[in-house]
């Protein structure tokens, strides 16, 4: 047996877990090559120690199988929970940013409405709308007693002021609701966001408020209009 045969057969004996042939032992002990003697020495050492290693340490698992099964059931549930848990964080963050954006746009909308409202310059600049100082300082009950200003003139001035204010508020409210609706609604050209169902719910929540605000404003307008018609 040469050294190559020795190494090949020893390798096979190790991998196939078979006892080595006697000639292997003879070559391993008597070969002049240091490599062969080292290989044989390692083999003898490990074959002597490994059985003790396998027996020496108790490897009894102390786990309760039922608890493992329960943990597996809980794990599958919590796995779903983890997937859910990621979404609310993202949604919360987006919601926070969107709220800031909506608030900012609403403020801009109000300012724009104030600047572009045709009634505001009229209110500020029109000499007809300006109240006489006496009227402005009067309490509601004192209007009849004011000297120099007739009741009809005061009534008309008040009605005009009411119209102006109501128109102003109505315009602003309309701008805000339109702005919010524009921000929250998805443009038809864009793909709908897959994980943001709260857009729809928020819009649904806002819609009744918008409608009731609109109704209130219409009622106020009608009331003011009716009063002005009655007074005229």
């Amino acid at each position: 047996m040469n050294c190559l045969e020795f190494q090949t057969q020893l390798e096979s004996a190790i991998l196939e877990r078979t006892s080595p042939a006697p000639e292997l032992a003879e070559h391993g002990c008597t070969c002049s090559a240091q490599d062969c003697r080292d290989l044989w020495s390692d083999y003898i050492l490990l074959e002597g120690q490994l059985p003790l290693w396998l027996e020496g340490e108790s490897a009894d698992s102390p786990l309760d199988p039922l608890r493992v099964v329960q943990a597996a059931a809980e794990s599958s549930l919590s796995g779903r929970h983890v997937r859910r848990r990621v979404r609310p964080e993202t949604r919360q963050s987006m919601r926070r940013w969107l709220a800031v954006a909506v608030a900012g746009v609403a403020v801009v909308g109000v300012i724009a409405a104030l600047n572009t409202s045709p009634d505001l310059p009229q209110l500020v600049q029109s000499p007809d709308v300006r109240l006489p100082p006496e009227v402005a300082l009067l309490e509601p009950g004192d209007t009849a007693a004011s000297p120099g200003v007739s009741t009809e003139e005061s009534q008309q001035a008040l009605t005009e002021i009411s119209h102006t204010y109501v128109g102003w508020i109505h315009g602003s409210a309309h701008q805000i609701s339109e702005t919010v609706g524009f921000v929250l609604s998805t443009p038809p050209s864009m793909d709908p966001l897959p994980v943001l169902p709260w857009y729809d719910t928020l819009q649904e929540q806002i819609r009744p408020i918008e409608e009731s605000f609109q109704k209130t404003m219409d009622g106020v307008l009608q009331e003011v209009g009716g009063e002005s018609q009655r007074s005229s």
Binding site: A59, D60, S61, L63, V68
Partner: peptide, 14 residues
């Protein structure tokens, strides 16, 4: 599932 755990737990633990 308990049977499964019993079958493999010693080998896995070792």
């Amino acid at each position: 599932q308990v049977e499964f755990v019993n079958l493999f737990q010693q080998r896995v633990f070792a």
